[in-house]
C-alpha cells in the first residue's frame, strides 16, 4: 500500500486507553443493518438475519445491533464506536457468509479510520537496554588520545607475516646457533 495518499492517512498502531492490557472493552457501541425486504441485493443480509444474527448477538453482548428495514434501498452497515467514530459500509449483493465476515470485522475495529501503518508494531518503550549512541561499546581511552595514533592503524584480522613466523620458529641469536 502506498504511503503517499491524499486520503488514506498514515500512522502507527494504537489502542484507545491501553485497551486489552488488563481488561478489554469492545469499542463497537452499536451497529445498524439497513436492508430491503424485497430487493435481491439485500438477500445475503436477510439470510444473515434469519440464520446467524441471534447467535451473533448472544456471543457479543457488548455491541447493540439495530435492524432497519427500508424499502427499495441497497443494504448498508453503519457501525458507531466509543471514540465517536462512525463507519459506513455497503453490503450490496453480498452472500450470507460475506455479510457475516464484514459484520464481524466492523465489530472488532476500534473506530479509527483506515490508515497506512508505518510499522506493524508499536512500543512506548522501544529499547530496554538503552538507545545506541556513538559512544556505545567504544573504549573510553578514545577521549584522551591525540590523533593520529599509529597503534590504531593496525588492520583488523591481521595474520602474522612470514618473517614473524620464521622469527618465532627459529628466533634465537646467531651466536648460539653457530656454537652448536
Amino acid at each position: 500500500m502506498s504511503q503517499l495518499s491524499l486520503f488514506v492517512k498514515s500512522g502507527f498502531v494504537k489502542a484507545p486507553l491501553a485497551n486489552g492490557i488488563g481488561r478489554y472493552v469492545p469499542q463497537c457501541q452499536r451497529m445498524t443493518l439497513k436492508f430491503c425486504l424485497g430487493w435481491g441485493n439485500s438477500r445475503g443480509v436477510r439470510d444473515f438475519i434469519q440464520h446467524d444474527l441471534i447467535e451473533f448477538v448472544k456471543q457479543n453482548p457488548g455491541t447493540v445491533m439495530y435492524l432497519k428495514p427500508r424499502r427499495h434501498r441497497s443494504p448498508v452497515l453503519v457501525a458507531e464506536y466509543l471514540n465517536g467514530g462512525r463507519e459506513w459500509f455497503s453490503l450490496n449483493d453480498m452472500t450470507r457468509e460475506e455479510v457475516y465476515k464484514w459484520v464481524d470485522l466492523y465489530r472488532t475495529k476500534a473506530g479509527y479510520p483506515d490508515m497506512h501503518f508505518k510499522n506493524y508494531q508499536h512500543s512506548d518503550i522501544p529499547s530496554i537496554q538503552g538507545y545506541w549512541t556513538p559512544f556505545t561499546n567504544k573504549p573510553a581511552d578514545r577521549n584522551m588520545l591525540e590523533f593520529p595514533q599509529n597503534s590504531l592503524n593496525t588492520p583488523l584480522n591481521l595474520k602474522p607475516s612470514t618473517s614473524e613466523i620464521i622469527s618465532k620458529l627459529y628466533g634465537e641469536p646467531q651466536e648460539q646457533r653457530s656454537s652448536r
Binding site: 556513538p134 567504544k138 578514545r142 577521549n143 590523533f147 593520529p148 595514533q149 590504531l152 592503524n153 593496525t154 588492520p155 583488523l156 591481521l158
Partner: peptide, 15 residues
C-alpha cells in the same frame, strides 16, 4: 579539524 576527531579507521594493509 583535528580537534573534532574522536576515532580512527584501521588501515587495510600494514605499511
Amino acid at each position: 579539524i583535528i580537534q573534532n576527531i574522536t576515532d580512527q579507521i584501521p588501515q587495510l594493509r600494514t605499511v
